[in-house]
């Protein structure tokens, strides 16, 4: 009875693990983090794999040792050694302080190195001139401003491939976090503060970004599409956007900033290029009566 029970359950556990392995492989293409389409995300994927391999040096032997020990020294196996008083061995203990410590040391070096190489605040070197996109998280949508191109969009970005993009981010509501898993990891947006991230997309296609930090009831609808296209198509898009009848000024911005959720993609032609800075500064110094002016309309 006892043995059958154990056998059934252990088989089931192994089956679960096997099912997950298959599921993992089946969904392989859909796993954004492991299918990077840009420079930063590729480096991050490489790092994930390196770290996993390094830790396996300890974890894999540990698992085998556990199974071996549990099996061999089970009650009833009278053939196995039994030394109830054996409670320390300096050499062994030094080994399992030292080996993990050594691996952590290597990992630390990796951390130190990658923290500066994968620093989001560092511009990406490239022959192609970068494009600046200003990002403002609102309740509950994203506003993207292309200050040089004089274009703005809601819940949609179009970027040319192999071109460095400099994102400047802030929030005109609570904290949010900006994340496009295929292209790069996330960075938070906060009112009155400016954060930065620099990315570069390799492959054409449509990818999705989200807000990964809870920001209220419409939070789940803060998805946006990222269209990576050729430079030619990108320029075409800019041109058509410039002709858009939707015009973004401080006045129309105030309307847009009112809470709304599951917003569709919307393209604006930008008239007020100082919008981003005005929004950031609005929280910092008490001019114009403080931030109440912009967001008090929430009611």
């Amino acid at each position: 009875m006892k043995k059958t029970l154990r056998f059934i359950f252990i088989t089931l556990i192994l089956l679960c693990v096997a099912v997950f392995g298959t599921m993992f492989l089946l969904h392989g293409k859909n796993i954004a983090v492991l299918n990077p389409k840009g420079l930063i995300a590729s480096k991050e994927k490489g790092l994930i794999i390196t770290v996993c391999l390094l830790i396996s040096i300890v974890v894999v032997p540990l698992f085998f040792l556990t199974i071996f020990t549990a099996y061999k020294y089970r009650e009833g196996n009278d053939g196995a050694n039994y030394s109830p008083e054996w409670d320390s061995d300096p050499l062994l203990e030094i080994i399992w302080w030292a080996i993990p410590a050594a691996i952590i040391l290597v990992l630390s070096l990796i951390v130190w190195h990658t923290s500066s190489t994968l620093n989001y605040y560092k511009p990406i070197k490239s022959k192609v001139p970068p494009i600046t996109i200003q990002v403002i998280s609102l309740d509950w949508k994203w506003l993207f401003i292309y200050p040089k191109e004089k274009v703005a969009s809601v819940n949609f970005i179009e970027i040319p491939q192999n071109t460095p993009i400099d994102f400047e981010l802030t929030s005109d509501t609570v904290m949010n976090a900006f994340w496009i898993p295929n292209l790069a990891g996330q960075i938070m947006t906060m009112p009155g503060m400016e954060t930065k991230i620099h990315i570069l997309a390799y492959n054409k296609g449509t990818y999705y970004g989200v807000s990964s930090n809870i920001s209220g009831s419409g939070f789940a609808g803060m998805r946006f599409a990222v269209q990576v296209s050729s430079l030619k198509n990108f320029n075409k898009w800019i041109e058509s956007a410039n002709r858009s009848s939707n015009i973004l000024t401080m006045t129309s911005y105030k309307k847009l900033a009112k809470p709304s959720s599951y917003n569709h993609k919307k393209i604006y032609s930008l008239k007020d290029t100082g919008l981003f800075n005005a929004i950031v500064e609005n929280y910092m110094v008490p001019v114009f009566g403080g931030p109440i002016m912009l967001t008090d309309s929430k009611g």
């Binding site: 480096k43 991050e44 996993c52 951390v111 990658t114 790069a184 996330q186």
Partner: peptide, 20 residues
Amino acid sequence: LGGVAGVMMAVPAIDYQLHN
């Protein structure tokens, strides 16, 4: 296994992808 995931996320550059 959870610890492995933890060590992964302890690397800031990886955490950017996995946080939240």
